[in-house]
Amino acid sequence: MVNASKQLITGLGVLLLFSVLSVSCYAMDYPEEVEIDSLANLYEPVIFDHAMHVDATEGCAECHHHTTGTPVLNAYCAKCHTGDVEMDVVACQDCHSADPVSPENLHNPKPGYSYHNDQPNLKAAYHLKCLGCHREVDGPTGCEDCHAKTEAGDKFYHSGEFAPKEDAQHGAEHE
């Protein structure tokens, strides 16, 4: 009886392993597509092709630091984070606060960490990571290559239908 259940569990485990391996070379589940929308205001949400980026990058750690259980690529982080296991938190916004300099956070700072004390906010975490890499590999770097401007964005930047009228006259003169 005990042997039978053990065999069943092993069999199920092997099946699960095969099914995961058939999805990707990484031994974990990941979403094919992620809609990054928590900060959308001046720009539309980003429909992030996660599967494509999994194929295009060396490893999860290139974006996810040490949280996915895969080998850490950054030598500085690797000083502490070696052989880490997959964490419950893997999304950027799980660690990167959207508003780290709110009056509450500034007056109640976290106890003095020697590390993780210069964490970019969520918006910067996205842009520094995405743009940083895109500039290196000649990926798209224009604002609207990743997210289209909203009407609020056009108003904010005085562009599109909210463009300065004087400029329109200027343009007409030139044309």
Partner: peptide, 15 residues
Amino acid sequence: NKEQKLPEPALPFDD
């Protein structure tokens, strides 16, 4: 420009 309620710019801010 928005925060300080400054006048409209000569060119859009994405120019």
